[in-house]
Nucleic acid binder design. Structure first.
Length: 422
RNA sequence: GGAGAGAUGGCCGAGUUGGCUGAAGGCGCUCGCUUGCUAAGCGAGUAAGCGAUCAAAAAUCGCUUCGAGGGUUCGAAUCCCUCUCUCUCCGCCA
């Protein structure tokens, strides 16, 4: 959510900076509603002030005895004030509804552009391999413990069973990533709930605009988390944090659930686009002046996972048109996929500035006596585990159909290669 | 799921015959003083949000907020209703 006061005083700048992200009509509606609301607020408050003046008769405590004429007048004032309050509530709701649908402002450093083709590559690491004999990960995986057919029988499309060493690899990756971030990068491990309320989903920006992407339980109106970002960011909802405790860096594993509405036909094979996948997520709460340095650090933290896994990748700065709803700036990490001859997203690290903090009401005091201000929140995958498995299979495959595992993973998996499941 | 108790400011905790309570007291925190360190002591201060005046800040004025929503009343932390959450006991369960 953007700051209404800022929008009020910078209508033209808002329009210009949001041009690639929102149509101008919404901003027009916002201005009109805001103007009407402020008129109504003034009228309602002046009526209340009159009421109080009559009750108190100047300074001091309220009068215990009130004359009949005053009482009649007060009754009338109360009635009028009630009507304005009603209008005020309605307008506030409207205004809030509009604000919740306006995406974040891109930072000045974000490249201008319409879609992913305008994203800017920042750097590369590792040497991509490709060879004619290499096979896509779902083919290699079929004999190594990836079972999509039975998953379809049990759960439908876009689910998977993993068996044996493959299942162990999945679990090993989670542990490896968590250990790395906790031991080397100073994160605190957190284990979050996988079902969250509508308020939590609104706090991070998944709702109200993207309801069709989420799985929802109908009885209780709880949502399956699409990412641990949702529970972990909302962990500090409605809190005023002590500035001395910033930055707070959390890392959490969670299963992630996404309906993938609108992506029919895309990435239908393999582990790339699932309804359920595992992810290790980093979340930072930082003071505003530190958030861009924190974003760079977070990207490096995610990159280090790929480096330990010996997976070639590149870092991409998303352009204004490709930015997610809540993000002011985002770097994607894209891992090399030999059989697709391209880099595929495996991590996304974003600085949301105060956008989520304003929605979720997360503030801090720089000093014990200073006014509360909104924190900046950041989140980044570190990494998406399913896609990491896919990348390991494709990049580590051998001509005999086995898969060599990177050194760093061997203690976690217990073997140095995935070989045929008998 | 059944029965009972509760929800007040950064924290703890008074206040339930409706008005003088935005809210006692304590802790914490900030500033100052004091004691040769530490600890302690003394004094002052210390909620948030919104609106108006203002170029802006500061300041001032006004409004709102005692879990949430609604009701009674000129007036509600205090009375009534609904909901949410927490705690205790019972049941069930990994």
């Amino acid at each position: 959510m953007l700051d209404i006061k800022w929008l009020r005083s910078h209508p033209d700048e808002a329009r210009a900076r949001l041009r690639d992200r929102v149509n101008g009509e919404l901003l027009q509606q916002l201005e009109e509603t805001d103007t009407r609301l402020r008129q109504v607020i003034q009228q309602a408050e002046s009526l209340r002030a009159q009421q109080h003046a009559l009750q108190h008769g100047g300074a001091g405590p309220a009068k215990r005895s009130i004359t009949e004429t005053d009482r009649a007048r007060l009754r009338q004032l109360a009635e009028e004030a009630k009507q304005y309050e009603q209008q005020r509530r309605e307008l506030e709701e409207q205004l809030y509804g509009i604000l919740l649908r306006i995406p974040n402002l891109p930072d000045a450093s974000v490249p201008k552009g319409r879609d992913e083709r305008d994203n800017v590559e920042v750097r590369r690491w590792g040497t991509p391999k490709q060879a004619p004999w290499m096979r896509p990960h779902w083919e290699i995986g079929a004999s190594l413990g990836l079972d999509f057919e039975r998953a379809a029988k049990v759960s439908g499309a876009r689910f998977v069973f993993e068996r044996g060493a493959m299942a162990r690899l999945e679990r090993a990756l989670v542990n490896f990533m968590l250990d790395l971030h906790v031991q080397q990068h100073g994160y605190e491990e957190m284990f979050p709930p996988f079902l969250v309320t509508r308020e939590a989903m609104t706090g991070t920006g998944q709702l109200p605009k993207f309801a069709e992407d989420a799985f929802r339980t109908t009885e209780d109106e709880l949502y399956l988390v699409p990412t641990a970002e949702v529970p972990v960011t909302n962990y500090h909802r409605d809190e005023i944090l002590d500035g001395a405790t910033l930055p707070r860096k959390y890392v959490a594993y969670s299963a992630c659930f996404r309906r993938e509405a609108g992506s029919a036909g895309r990435d239908t094979r393999g582990l790339i686009r699932m309804h359920q996948f595992n992810k290790v997520e980093m979340v930072n709460f930082v003071a505003p002046e530190d958030s861009y340095a924190a974003l760079e650090a977070m990207v490096r933290d995610a990159e280090e996972v790929l480096q330990h896994l010996q997976l070639p990748y590149r870092v991409v700065a998303l352009c204004t048109g490709d930015l997610g709803f809540s993000a002011a700036k985002t770097y994607d990490l894209e891992v090399w996929m030999p059989t697709q001859h391209t880099y595929r997203e495996i991590s996304s690290c974003s600085n949301c500035e105060a956008f989520q903090a304003r929605r979720a009401n997360i503030r801090f005091r720089a000093h014990p006596t200073s006014k509360p201000e909104y924190v900046h929140t950041l989140n980044g995958s570190g990494l998406a585990v399913g896609r990491t498995v896919a990348a390991l299979l494709e990049n580590g495959q051998q001509p005999d159909g086995s898969v060599l595992l990177p050194e760093a993973l061997i203690p976690y998996v217990g073997v140095d290669r995935l070989a045929l499941v008998p």
